[in-house]
Design a protein around this nucleic acid. Sequence first.
DNA 1: CACGTTGTATCACGCTTGTGATAGAAACCA
DNA 2: TGGTTTCTATCACAAGCGTGATACAACGTG
Lengths: 208, 208
Amino acid sequence: MPKYVDPEARRREVVDALFRVVVREGLQRASLRVVADEAGLNIGSLRHYFASQQDLMEFAMRSMLERVGGRLLRRVEEIGTLAEHPADEQRRLAADLLCELLPLDERRRAEVTVFIDFVTAARTNPALDGLAQEAAVGARSLVRRILARLDESGAVRPGLDLDQETERLAALVDGLGLGAALHPDVLAPETAASVLYAHLESLRPPAA
Amino acid sequence: MPKYVDPEARRREVVDALFRVVVREGLQRASLRVVADEAGLNIGSLRHYFASQQDLMEFAMRSMLERVGGRLLRRVEEIGTLAEHPADEQRRLAADLLCELLPLDERRRAEVTVFIDFVTAARTNPALDGLAQEAAVGARSLVRRILARLDESGAVRPGLDLDQETERLAALVDGLGLGAALHPDVLAPETAASVLYAHLESLRPPAA
DNA sequence: CACGTTGTATCACGCTTGTGATAGAAACCA
DNA sequence: TGGTTTCTATCACAAGCGTGATACAACGTG
């Protein structure tokens, strides 16, 4: 009982293929023909689902951001109200959450890698620039919310400049992700994670 | 009295042209023809100074790293023995130095931008990978040396894990540079600098 | 059955790419 | 001056690119 192909599923397959190509050979090698091959599709079929190359790129980047963003938001949900946990655990949970943005396994490594390529490409590609901007704002908003919760429940030193700390933490995560993704030999992913945990520990209130 | 062209100067001109193209349109658009045009040269002339495209890319990346690295080392020299200054100023000088890696003016913005493009390209370009590795190691070595000096002269809290703090500071600078270069509207370069200064202040010894 | 939609597959076109080959001008040296 | 090296300029080629056009099978629907 054959049916029409689910176009949404097809698009997802194509995007997955594109991600594999990007991880393996970089965004600049992700031409329509190469992506089509990787997806086991004819270029004509691929073009039936994506009107143009720009269209594919834009859709792929949006998909990536939605996946990562969705995962993060879901994890925020799971944690729920941080205030129910002891302060040590609150900071640990916050770090766990942000570890989603570090290349600690194959999945996350792929996501970080693809993210880097798209974000840098967005600088000179107007079609992607809006999404990159969105991602930057969204990431800061998430970090800010985490810090605010920690602050409200007394899991971090009082009187912190949350705006400043948001930028510091966001930049730290970006830098750790970048370093661990591009130079795992120089910065081991586990080291990156431990630095992140230590950073959050450095925000804890004084012992007395 | 015409003389033979200084090939070294010519190569430098070509590399400068390449940098301009990369800043303006991205590394991906920096083809031999485009770079030659930007340099006001014929592609044939360009190829007289660079055997191949890979050769040009490699030479350009090495040039960039030497420029930035040289500037940093020179500034370390200028500062000399940090221990001669009061602790507050030592930390400020350290931050000043690292600000060389933030896009605080056109020159630094160009350098950071080109750096990002080359380092990400290096991931899938074996010819550039060694240089990128070198840069990553060198940056950490520099940061480590700065922190060690601050530590020796008591300008930072005693008992710090210098390895950990090196990675934290290096990642922070990377993240701030990346954010401010790619999304200056979201992260103003001056904000990035102030975050960097604040970070070093957070390492100061307790008041008592 | 017939008809419109959806999906797959190919061809051709114009363009850009890196590169090999070549020719000739310009500069230097003997 | 003649000869060698340095430099500029151009052509041709194969390869890859995005894309428009088209043909045809597969499918769902009336």
